[in-house]
Design a protein around this nucleic acid. Structure first.
Length: 749
RNA sequence: AGCGGGAUGGGAUAGCCAGGAGAUUCCGCCGGGCUCAUAACCCGGAGAUCGGUAGUUCAAAUCUACCUCCCGCUACCA
């Protein structure tokens, strides 16, 4: 192991992947934040000085697009979500020392500073690239404003990644046959000058880095393919208004801020025209904004900085943590490991953003002279009934929803933190939730501390006096649990950190059961007192060890134990310090979840998912209706231009068009739009797949005359063979039919 | 079809990265105990040749190759 075990002398910072200010939080998101919170608390228990920070990710095209849809400016839109998150996290006892956002001044300033450093050190160069551009709307189309075909695998791809095919990250200008996602217009490529970060020069460094990176295995393995293959330089600018301006040396920061304000005003006044990407100005002045993945991770640093600004650098020094000893310019791209003088940086993220944290981000840090992350913990996803969450279909358990049901946040924390390995996907169901709460939290932990403290209170009004201290066996057992806890933290296993406490409580139950103090009280009062003293000690240790997972419950337990101070602040030593000799009747730490409750929750969930799916469909229809209306009003404006290219009569004759009659029509399961049709085309019956499921009452189509391209190559869609193509007009799939009574099979010409 | 993740007693999970006592924990099942405790708790038991095949090794759930099956995301106007 190339790193010292926790706790170390250095300060640590634990960060959580920034939530993207674009929608509600659900239990899946919470997995990462709870994981980070548990880990940060656990580090503190070990005695490691730790800052726990995060912030909202405000920039990027999806925010801009969705703000436009709502007719507000991106800042207003993103801030609204930011405030929501800021308020939600503490309700799950995810307590950041600082929670900022990427659009605040601290981050804007630090981002410009870091980028300027990269620039000065020669890590940035300019390159003219072809950028997708919508000539009709006169705007550039960065990232998700454009989609087209992946140049590597041929699948349909978004502008920034081949999300449906090979999963490759796509650089601007790479996507083939680009189309604007805003207008649907085919886009053309125009040459623009952009900034590139020489990631390729840091390849040797990154190879060393990935080998010494700690955390979960997936974070270390997934980026290998990139780091050990050929690293591409990274385009770090975009043609947009929304974001942090590229820090041109000649432009003073103040002016840039003004620029931001301007753009916000402009886009809010201008939203109806639906444009937010940078419009080219008359003089063609480059108004480049930094790519969102540049300023987003810098927020980790900015947020730490804000924390220091609040508490003072004598309490926590962000610069010592993040900067440490700067690597000299000439050394940066060597594989040499930086002097380990900085802090322990631990990133807790979802497994979908591993590459950003193990390639681009450490490269930036290194090149700018910052300290490298010690560990990346990448969590698996949360599934629902074995299937993935689908926010669009409302197939999810939302954070608010959970709280509204009145459940203690600790229950969910326990469930998602310990139900499986951190990098493993965990399944959520109310049944399993109930099982673990009732069995482990109530039956094992809650029951043990309650029976112990109640017995102690009734017979001794607290921990029995006159006992010399814990018995050796129990002491060893507690020490063992403390050791397990420490090991778990060093293994980055939040699951095991929780397990140590639960197993200790389990031991407590065995211990009290074996010694039966209730039988001893009368005949052997001293023996009884010793047993109960031991039990109270175990309960106290449980409070200390379980605090990272269940901070609320442990706070109550700490009070029940009549302990001074805060259970959140005590270290592991407290586990073996003598318990109080006086305390009141204890409370029940956790409550059982009755079966009826689970049934009710399941019904609710199912009903909502069904309803939302239906509403989704209606929504689509409404949108479609709107689109139709627009089509009519818009007249010729929205029509595709006529093809310039003329074809020969022979080429036309190559099409075998036939009249057909629909004999049967049914939807294809799993597909939103595809329908399977059986069509009689005179000489034979054909099975044809057509994308008309939502646009037609399928039953009404039966008997309808249609025009079919009979000699189109066969294709398979959703595993269903399509042997021909049904002709239809426009977005609404207005199906072509015959005016007279041409019989099926008649050739069309 | 592509990418990713899995396959361990009835169900759910750990262990595999750093091979070595026929294997963890939870739920369920069977039998017993206890009554301090939120019908909680404790003890004992049945039950897996760790997906298949072939290798490497003195030794493989753990390493290598191939295969099968499952799941997730994608798949959509042919």
């Amino acid at each position: 192991m190339s790193h010292e075990d926790f706790p170390t002398e250095q300060h640590a910072v634990v960060t959580c992947g920034l939530p993207y200010a674009n929608g509600d939080l659900h239990v899946g998101h919470l997995r990462t934040y709870v994981g980070g919170d548990v880990f940060a608390r656990a580090l503190r228990k070990l005695g490691q000085r730790t800052a726990f920070v995060s912030g909202s990710d405000m920039h990027g095209t999806p925010v801009a697009v969705n703000a436009e849809k709502e007719g507000v400016d991106p800042e207003t839109f993103a801030l609204r979500w930011h405030e929501k998150y800021e308020e939600t996290f503490p309700r799950f006892r995810v307590e950041f020392d600082n929670y900022g956002h990427t659009h605040d001044e601290t981050n804007a300033e630090l981002t410009r500073e870091i980028v300027r450093t990269l620039d000065e050190r020669g890590y940035v160069y300019e390159k003219d690239i072809m950028v997708a551009y919508d000539p009709e709307e006169d705007q550039y189309l960065p990232d998700r404003y454009v989609e087209g075909t992946c140049p590597y695998c041929g699948a349909k791809a978004r502008g920034d990644e081949c999300d449906e095919g090979c999963q490759r990250h796509l650089e601007p200008g790479e996507v083939v046959d680009p189309v604007s996602t805003i207008t649907g217009n085919p886009a053309e490529y125009r040459e623009r000058t952009h900034k590139f970060f020489r990631v390729s020069e840091l390849q040797e460094y990154l190879q060393g880095f990935i080998d010494r990176l700690e955390g979960t295995a997936n974070a270390r393995n997934q980026p290998r393919e990139w780091i050990e293959g050929e690293l591409q330089d990274w385009c770090i600018t975009r043609d947009m208004d929304w974001g942090i301006d590229y820090p041109e040396g000649s432009v003073a920061p103040e002016e840039q801020r003004d620029g931001d304000g301007d753009s916000a005003e402009r886009s809010s006044a201008d939203h109806s025209s639906g444009r937010s990407p940078r419009e080219e100005t008359v003089d063609g002045e480059d108004d480049l904004v930094l790519y969102v993945w540049v300023d987003a991770p810098i927020e980790y640093v900015s947020s730490t900085k804000q924390y220091t600004e609040r508490v003072g650098s004598d309490v926590y020094d962000w610069e010592a943590v993040w900067k440490g000893e700067d690597v000299s310019e000439s050394d940066a791209d060597s594989g040499a490991r930086p002097t380990p003088s900085g802090g322990e940086i631990v990133h807790v993220i979802g497994r979908d953003i591993i590459q950003h944290h193990t390639v681009f981000w450490p490269a930036m840090l290194r090149a700018a002279g910052y300290n490298e992350p010690r560990a990346v913990m990448a969590s698996g996803f949360v599934t629902l009934g074995g299937k993935g969450f689908s926010t669009s279909r409302n197939r999810a358990v939302w954070a608010d929803e959970y709280l509204d049901e009145g459940f203690d946040p600790d229950l969910l924390r326990y469930y998602i933190a310990t139900n499986g390995g951190f990098q493993q996907d965990v399944d959520f169901s109310w049944e399993k939730f109930q099982e673990r709460v009732n069995g482990e939290l109530v039956g094992t932990v809650g029951n043990f501390v309650y029976r112990s403290l109640l017995f102690a209170h009734r017979n001794y009004e607290g921990a029995p006096a006159g006992v010399e201290g814990v018995s050796d066996g129990v002491r060893e057992r507690i020490e063992g649990a403390v050791a397990d806890f420490g090991e778990a933290v060093n293994d980055y296993s939040v699951r095991e950190a929780g397990g140590a406490a639960v197993r200790l409580a389990q031991f407590g139950n065995e211990y009290i059961q074996r010694n039966e103090p209730w039988k001893l009280v009368d005949d052997e009062p001293e023996a009884a007192a010793r047993v109960i003293y031991d039990c109270v000690q175990i309960a106290k240790a449980v409070a200390v060890l379980f605090e990272p997972i269940a901070p609320g419950a442990c706070e109550r337990l700490w009070e029940d134990l009549n302990e001074d101070g805060s259970v959140h602040e005590v270290g592991l030593d407290a586990a073996l310090e003598p318990p109080a000799e006086r305390f009141d009747e204890p409370t029940e730490l956790f409550e059982k979840i009755p079966d009826e409750r689970v049934e009710e929750l399941n019904e609710k969930l199912e009903a909502r998912v069904a309803e939302a799916t239906a509403a989704d469909e209606e929504g689509d229809e409404a949108e479609d209706a709107e689109a139709t209306a627009n089509d009519e009003e818009a007249g010729t404006d929205d029509l595709e231009p006529l093809a310039d290219q003329r074809i020969s009569f022979e080429e036309f004759q190559a099409l075998d068009l036939r009249v057909g009659e629909i004999l049967d029509a049914e939807g294809i399961e799993g597909a939103d739009k595809l329908a399977k049709l059986t069509v009689d085309i005179g000489l034979e019956e054909r099975q044809i797949v057509a994308g008309i499921k939502q646009l037609h009452d399928l039953d009404e189509l039966v008997g309808e005359r249609v025009i079919v391209v009979a000699n189109l190559e066969r294709a398979e869609l959703f595993g269903v063979e399509s042997n021909g193509m049904l002709l239809a007009a426009g977005e609404q799939a207005d199906v072509l039919t015959t005016r007279g009574d041409a019989v099926p099979g008649t050739k069309v010409r």
